[in-house]
Design a binder for these strands. Structure first.
Lengths: 184, 184
DNA sequence: ATTCGAATGTAGCGAGTGCTACACTTGTAG
DNA sequence: CTACAAGTGTAGCACTCGCTACATTCGAAT
């Protein structure tokens, strides 16, 4: 009676690792708890990824991809009626409980960027690129300058998210409401 | 020949501790490096503050006060000509090197809030209150709704700061530029 | 001068950190 | 069947973490 050794690879490990990180945060994720969550040992994580930095880098790539997936599946397909409506839609959707883990790791990433971590910078760039494209595609077709509009919307969204994260969702909502209701 | 024992208290310690935190970040500040920076031992930090959580709480209070000071001394006295100009002023001033340490710890605080840390939430609330009041006071006198205007400006500023932190200052600046140039 | 409590130094505990050494078992290629 | 490399388990290293026990020194009140 011998269990299959359940051969592992980066690919089979990453979803389990990502689940643990989204549940417990990225900032203070350490090898042994990660390994426990994935049903392995710290020894094997190092074996498969080389060292912790490489593991985190792989994890960030994976999380960016999952974030893109989550956007595609959770967001309405239709374009918004205005920049303001677009921003409020993104704010509402990314405020759903399903996005809480992403919000959690997002601020870990921002803090890491602010501390000068290059891997985090790359991941943050990826996430912003994904979001920016999504916003461009969902701006009103009548928007005179979708590129500029998307940047305005994204700036407002990030600010609203930050304010919500620190318990000042009231400011965030008032801020979004002040976005111009119709394309300029 | 006996040196004065340099009696210490929370009050004499806090500036030194704060300096270390602003230089090296709040997230992974640990007792022994903090003590070294303040010319003491971890033992004494615990003695004066009780435990690390209380120390961090005191440190956050102190940092909020220093942030308020820095705002008062670094910002122009005059009111801005528009909401957009006000936002761009704050963005420019808080982008100065003198504010880099505050930006650094700010994102540590936001990440801590997102992880559910109550002390961080209180500190973040304090910082936002300070900033909100400053914005209200510097909006054009002609602004029809300074309370709403300040919230709009603050949301845009926070978003711009976040984007700048992750290396997308280009988006931030485009976003601020799209704020209405004259009071609505 | 004596006493007493506040302040401080030294040493260490138990837990957790990233990572490694070494032995061992597999599945597969020759 | 044998040889070999990929994969895995066990144990441990050198370190940091927050915190504590214990002994000492110091300044001020009596």
């Amino acid at each position: 009676m011998r269990m299959s050794p359940a051969r592992m690879s980066r690919e089979t490990l990453l979803p389990l690792l990502a689940a643990h990180v989204m549940a417990h945060g990225l900032a203070d994720a350490s090898l042994r708890p990660l390994a426990r969550a994935a049903g392995t040992s710290d020894r094997m994580l190092i074996y498969h990824f080389g060292n912790k930095d490489a593991l985190v880098a792989a994890l960030l790539d994976y999380l960016v991809a999952r974030f893109a997936d989550a956007l595609d599946s959770a967001f309405p397909q239709a374009r918004s009626a205005s920049r303001r409506a677009c921003a409020e839609t993104v704010y509402a959707v990314t405020g759903q409980p399903a996005f809480a883990p992403f919000r959690r790791v997002w601020w870990d990433i921002v803090a890491g960027c602010s501390a000068g971590n290059a891997a985090y910078l790359a991941a943050a760039g990826g996430m912003m690129e994904v979001l920016l494209e999504w916003v461009v595609d969902h701006l009103p077709a009548s928007d005179p300058d979708p590129a500029a509009g998307a940047r305005a919307v994204l700036t407002a969204i990030e600010g609203a998210q930050a304010l919500r994260a620190v318990g000042r969702g009231d400011i965030a909502e008032a801020g979004l409401a002040a976005l111009e209701g119709r394309p300029a």
